[in-house]
Amino acid sequence: MNVFRLLGDLSHLIAVIILLQKIWHTRSCAGISGKSQVLFALVYTARYLDLVSTYVSLYNTFMKVIFLISSYATIYFIYMKFRATYDRNHDTFRIEFLILPSVLLALLINHQFSFLEVLWTFSIYLESVAILPQLFMVSKTGEAESITSHYLFALGSYRGLYIFNWIYRYWSEQHYDIIAIVAGVVQTVLYCDFFYLYVTKVLKGKKLQLPA
């Protein structure tokens, strides 16, 4: 464990707390893409199946359980409890175009052709594009509530900080996982446009307006 990975995981934890807090307190999931949340639930389910077979550490287990519970809780809020506030018309990204290529790529490019390893690889590839429906929705509505943009900033920072973790681990332990690194870079690059707007607008108290 190193400080970059710890900060990355905390950033991820903060993101899910911000999201749940926003939905619970405003009793609304306006502006939130249910499709991205479905993809995240798929990602964490496929990646954290090893909860039953491998024990890494208490921290590892605790965080996996938190991310699994929070992703399903968010889906419950969006599609059931607060479904009246779900903006279905603006959440139209075809997620099958993200899932199928991730499945195919995981079957073709992986470290080991075993059930858990292919699922892990699938989750890594899918996570790198899972935010697209959300970013697409924000660009369609042309704006995002500031709380939603804080959520996106924390979520984007999580994998961005992991890149520093991978650099550190390569330099200090000669450990690297090329699949996680490439996917993590792709994932972070997808946020760059948003990061720019967040820093130049939201931090100055303006509303986040994406060019539609």
Binding site: N60, H111, W120, D177, I178, I179
Partner: peptide
Amino acid sequence: PQVEESHDEL
């Protein structure tokens, strides 16, 4: 590439 015996990252 490094074959991961188990993935220790989240």
